[in-house]
Structures are given as C-alpha cells and as structure tokens.
Design a protein around this nucleic acid. Structure first.
Lengths: 412, 412
DNA sequence: CTAACTTTGTTCACTTGCCTAAGAATGCCA
DNA sequence: TGGCATTCTTAGGCAAGTGAACAAAGTTAG
C-alpha cells in the first residue's frame, strides 16, 4: 500500500486476459463456450479472439462436431508463442526451467546452490546459465517474456527478498531483482516458492478459473500458496499462507521463530530427520533433504521407526491442511515441493482423511487432495508460470474493487 | 459456480461505488484526494461526485485550508440519506438495529429469541416489530434500502440458511429470505454473524479500503469474518473463516463436528461454562451466555478459578487468532460478538501477546488487536451495514478477474 | 491594489470496451 | 435444392474514462 496506486482506470484489457485465461484452463475451447463462461456477447468474444489470433497467442485448431448448425471452431493457446524462464533459488541448489505458454517444460536443469558465495557472483553465474541454455535450446529470445525468480520464505517488497533467517543472511539486503534484470536482460519477477508453486499448478494443471485452492509446499520450510478465483491471495504484506508457523501444540517445543509448537518445528523435514537421529538412527546424507529422502524410502519399505516418524509428521500436516481449508474454505489442496516429492504418498492418506472429516466436507463440498505431478521442480515451474501469467493477465496490483455482494434473495 | 455467471460486462458503476467507499472510509475527503486514491482523472471524479451530490448521497461541507491555490471542497456522506435495518437472529434473542449511512445507530432494540416457535410465526413477529419501529422513529420508508438478516453458522445459498446443528433445526429448510421479503416489503440479504460483524466494523470503524482484517466473533460459536481490500473473503462455498473448528490440540476432546481438539470445544463459552461446572462452581444462569457473563465478572473481581478458566480459553483463542493472521496475513483483528462483549478485556492481553510474537509481527508489520466498540450488537449492526454496502458497492458476485501481478522489479 | 502564479474543479471532444442488431458463413435434414 | 439451426462477423450506438483547455478561487510579489 505504498504511494499512489494505479487503481481503477487501469482495468482495461481485462477481458482479453480473462479470455486468455479461460482458453488456458480449458485446453481447447470454442468461441461459444467463451461467451457462456465470460458473460460477454458473442460479438465481443469474436473481436477479442481475432486480436489474440493476430497477435499469434491463440490458434484455431480444427472444428468440433456440429450440434445441428455450423460446427464450432476450436481455439487453443499456441504453446510456442511465448516462453518464460523460471529459477528456484535455494541454498541447497538452483533449479532452472524454461516453460512455454502451454506450461510445458522446454528445458530443465539444476546447479549447485548459492552456498556461501557472494550474491553478485551468483547473479553472474545465473545470467550465464540462462543465456547459454536459451541459445542451446534454440528458443527465439524475442519470445521470452521474462524471468521469474523464487525463493523460500517471506519477501520484502522494497529490497527484493528476505530469505529465511538461518541461512543466506547476506542476501537479505541485496537488490536481487534489479541485479538480475541488468545481468540477464529480461524483466524479473520475484516471489516466494509456495506462491509460485500454486501458480504453476494453476497454470499447467488445468485448474478452473473460479476455484479456491492452495498449494501446500514443503521444502526448506512449510508454506502455502493460495489462489482464489484465479488471483493470488497475498494478504496485507504479501506474506499470506505462512502455514509453517501456525501453532498445533500449545505444549510443544520452541520454534526458531519464537513461538511454541509450530508445524515446522514439529513436523517439517528437519524435525523429522532430527527425531530420527535422536532415536538412534544412522543417517548418511549430507543435508536434511537427503536424509529425509532416505527416511521416506525406509518408511516405504515398511521400516518401523521411519514409518512412525512420518506418520506423526503427517498428522500435524493434516491439521495444518485442515486449518487452511477451514479458514479459506478451499475445495482443493495440492501437495508439492521437494519434501512431498519424496514422501507425498506417505502423507496423502492422513491429510485426505482429515480433510474428509472437515467441518464442511460433509455439509457442502468435499476438499480434494492431490500430489503435484511435478513436485520436485514445482517452484521453478511456478516461477516461469508467474511470468506467463503476468503477461496473460496484466493487471495492476493496486486495482481494488469495493465490497462483494452478499447472498441476495430475490423475491418471488 | 452454478450456471451462467454474470461475469464481466456488469462491472459498471464500479467507480461510483469505489468513490463512495473512499468517502466513507475517510470520513471527509476532497476531490483531489479522491483522484489520487482511485487513480482516476480529476475529470472523472468531478462528474461522478456531481452525480453523487445530485442523488443526495454526498454533501459538500466547507473547504480545506489553501495549499497555495484554490482551497479544496470537502466531501462527506450525508448520514441521513439512506437507512438500513439489521436483524440478528439467534435462539437466545433477536436484536434489531436501524442504522444510517454513517453507520450510526438510529434505533436498537431486543426481543426474545425464536425459541421453539414456528418459523412463519417468527417471521410475522419480526415484520411487525420492524414496521412499528420505523414509523415510531420517523424514518422515511422510501429511504430504507433493505433488511439484513444474520444468524450463526454456515449458510446454504439455496434454501436460505442452515443454522448450527444443536438448535433451531427446523429452520434448516425454511425459505427465510423470501418469507421476510414478502412480510416486510424490503429486499433481504442473508449472511452469517461473523461476516456481518466484520462488515459492520469496516463500515462504522473507518477502516481503510486497502487493508486485510478479520473480525473474530465469539457468540454461540466461534467464527471470523474476513475482509480484504474492502471485499468479503468468502471462499469457494461462502463458509470461509470457520475458526471454531480448527484443531489446536491433537490430543484434545472430541467436538460435535466430529473432529478432535477444535477451538470451540476447548475454549468456547459453552466449554468454559462446562469446565466451571465440572470444577464444582455453582452457576445460577439460565443459559450459557448468562453463566459465561457471570464467570467473566467473577474473573474480573479476581476469583481464582474463573480467572484460570478464562486464561486457558484465551490461550486457545490466541492461537486461533494467530493462525488466522498467519494464513491471511492480517494487519488487524477485531474481537467482537456477545462473548467478547462480556469478557473481551480478559482475552485481549493474551491475544495481543501472541499476535505480537507472530512470525511477521517483527519482520514486516504489527498485527493490531482491538475490541469492538459495539460488540454486543455487532452482528445486528453488521447486518444493516451489509445492506448499506450492497447499495454502495453493487457488484456482481460472479465477477472474476484474472491473476494479480506479483511484485514487479523495475529495472534501473 | 494589481498582476502573476498555484491549485482546484468543470466542460467538451475523443477513444475504447462492450452491447444490440443485422447479416454472412457453414453445416444438417427434408 | 431449399429451409433451418448454429456459429461467427460486421456495423452502429451507448457509456465510462481520458486529455486538454478553461474557469474559479485562493496566495504572493511588486
């Protein structure tokens, strides 16, 4: 809420974005269906779609079967019309992705993390990586919309981002966005991993435009990206969805955040690994992720102790997911991120069970739970989707609308 | 998500609503400030404000001090331009309110609750109450915008409302809205008490348009009304903010909702009263509310056991508030509803403490906590505000916008 | 006191997004 | 082959918002 806001008036081109988004969500769709979905007239749809086709974003692909008259022309996004680069920055590793308009991954690679290197050095490395791969893959640079960069933890709008306290402290005040824009020559968007993962799912998962869902992301920390009606829910300081630090046990251990009984300190990967160590298990991995993976494999094989530990963790995550669903009235929760990539199938049943018991699951609608199809690089894919979305839905952040209408009862 | 949606295109008159809402939030404001806040041009503001003045909704009240040129004309809502009736329907009692555009209460009264009476009888009683009071107070019926009706628990869009399972079961399938519209002759809006209380605070509390806040409502149950950017957050089935049934103790008692360790069963008024009884305390009241009030007074006097019980309850509610703030990234939590009206000051310190420790309280922004100034009839006032708001911001529910832009980094 | 300047607010012609209405295109079926 | 249904396009009009010029009402400098 800083300074003068773009506000209303900038709300134009919104139907173009809405239509593009519907085409994305549907995969292939006809003009008639677009009129029904948007509420716009056939005439408007016609002209807007014409412009989209002229701009090369949309293709006419064949015709549907006739329903008694002229058959509908089917529309689709042209996947190779635009591209975006996504980068997931973590101290464990940097994941790169180049994605096209269809949400498909054109290139994907991984390099060692930032570690203790100087931020400027890392930025130069990232820029070189991206440039060489773009030429190698043969993507027309003019069609690349931008670069999305994603990292764990809360972000600060001013400086760029504040990473989680324990690690990468020196990045806190580094102007990452501006530096990368200079180095790579692309416009840069910054966001946190959970939000990006949610957009990634929204983008490539064919999720309907009107739904409310969350991506529960477990990686270094535990967070949630929340998308409502096709819009990211950000809250008052862009830090919504901080699931890792909700309290699920008033008598629990102290978390590094200062509170007691946080989900993260009770059930996060680091906590699970630490508990295994305390119980006397030998863990050979060099970091938490590796050890967590080893525990997940051991649990899958049926080993007693790992199984117990992961079951305990999944109970807490079930509570967190249920809390999220209760507060936000979600209809879908997607498990994603590196930790769920390793152990998602162990967590799924318990989380599913709890959400099935949820207050409204019986009354109004069920809460579905799924595991992301690309959980390991969900954040990087989401970073790219972030950029794609910002092109398809170029909407000012400050645009605000007045209060929504409550349930209206129309008199007989 | 049913059928064809109103969709885009119906987005007109939105700037009129936005401007009206800004005038409401500011109390008094000039045209120049409106241009800055909305992003619209001075020309647009001029014409829209002219229409608002012609319609009698806005008044020009004096001029501001000159800043070197022509002094600004100050604008204000005309409080007596419009009125709305609010009704809070609970089995304990029915609270009525007539409020004006300024959010001020013109009339307020209370009658015995629905009890076990026939719904049709109750509707007739309500209609008679409202009609006689309108004439008694002398409000011009033509200036009454409508009737807001509010009750605890989740609502079903189809039939009207579903009240909480334990009581008033026979109301579940009664078409309350339609019946009231016929009987009273006003258009009727239905919603739940927590949401209404939140709008009430938003309306009369002078809360800024851009903020994210929640009204934590403790009455029969525990719920939260969530308002983001001046819009009610409703979720996918209008049941968002169900705080009462989030789990805060995995080893806790079973709740009537089927889950374990819900806030409501651990810390709700009924739970506090039951615990007091179990501990051997004599409680003379006829219902939970009276006994809870007695306990609150005893605790204020410093009696040991009541104090302990309420402190225990406030710890759980602190967790709930913190969870809400973490998930939604709130900047303000308002305690309201009958229970907080009785014991708010006993709850405030602990809730404040917890939110002060919250993850982002230190990093980005504090989370403020206040007690509603009119907690006892917050729901009824909110019911009226609901109607006022629906006039000031006549926005279609189905209007949906594509994804919001993430943090953009502008190069050099 | 007058002239120049600043800031506020209004008027008017123009653009743009969307709508209504009419018509063109393209298939099915008698 | 000629209706008929359905899809899509084109043409004219309305309304919201903009930009630019202008009018109004104050302050400040001479």
């Amino acid at each position: 809420m800083s300074g003068s806001q773009p506000g209303l008036g900038a709300a134009h081109a919104s139907s173009r974005s809405a239509i593009l988004d519907l085409i994305r969500a549907a995969g292939t769709i006809s003009r008639v269906e677009l009129t029904r979905a948007t509420g716009l007239t056939a005439a408007t749809i016609s002209t807007v779609v014409r412009r989209l086709i002229d701009d090369g974003l949309v293709l006419e692909v064949g015709r549907a079967e006739s329903t008694g008259g002229k058959p509908r022309m089917l529309l689709q996004l042209d996947p190779s019309a635009r591209y975006a680069v996504g980068v997931h920055l973590d101290h464990a590793g940097i994941t790169y992705v180049i994605a096209n308009l269809g949400g498909a991954i054109v290139a994907r690679w991984r390099r060692p993390g930032a570690g203790s290197d100087d931020p400027a050095t890392v930025v130069a490395r990232i820029a070189a990586e991206i440039r060489t791969t773009i030429t190698r893959v043969g993507v027309d640079p003019a069609r690349i919309l931008g670069l999305g960069v994603v990292s764990p933890g809360p972000i600060s709008a001013s400086t760029g981002m504040t990473l989680t306290p324990p690690v990468m402290q020196r990045w806190a005040e580094f102007p990452l966005g501006a530096a990368l824009e200079d180095a790579v020559g692309l416009s840069v968007l910054l966001d946190n991993d959970a939000t990006a993962a949610a957009i990634g799912e929204y983008w490539s998962g064919g999720i309907a435009t009107g739904s409310a869902f969350a991506a529960l992301y477990m990686g270094t920390g535990i967070g949630a990206g929340i998308i409502v009606d096709g819009t990211v829910y950000r809250g008052s300081s862009s830090n919504a969805g901080e699931v890792g630090h909700i309290c699920v046990d008033l008598d629990g251990p102290v978390c590094w955040c200062g509170n007691i009984g946080c989900v993260e300190v009770l059930a996060g990967p680091a906590a699970v690994v630490a508990a295994a160590r305390d119980a006397g298990l030998e863990l050979p991995g060099r970091n938490v992720a590796e050890n967590f993976g080893a525990l997940a494999r051991a649990a899958s094989r049926g080993e007693e102790l790992p199984l117990q530990l992961l079951e305990r963790s999944s109970r807490y995550l079930g509570v967190a997911a249920q809390t999220l669903a209760n507060v936000l009235d979600l209809e879908l929760v997607i498990l994603t991120g590196p930790a769920f990539a390793l152990a998602g199938s162990l967590y799924l049943p318990e989380i599913e069970r709890r959400l099935g018991q949820s207050f409204f699951a019986r009354g109004s609608h069920p809460v579905r739970v799924t595991i992301s199809s690309n959980a390991p690089e969900a954040a990087a894919v989401g970073a790219a989707a972030l950029v794609l979305q910002s092109e398809l839905a170029p909407r000012q952040a400050g645009l605000r609308m007045p209060l929504e209408l409550p349930l209206e009862v129309t008199a007989g």
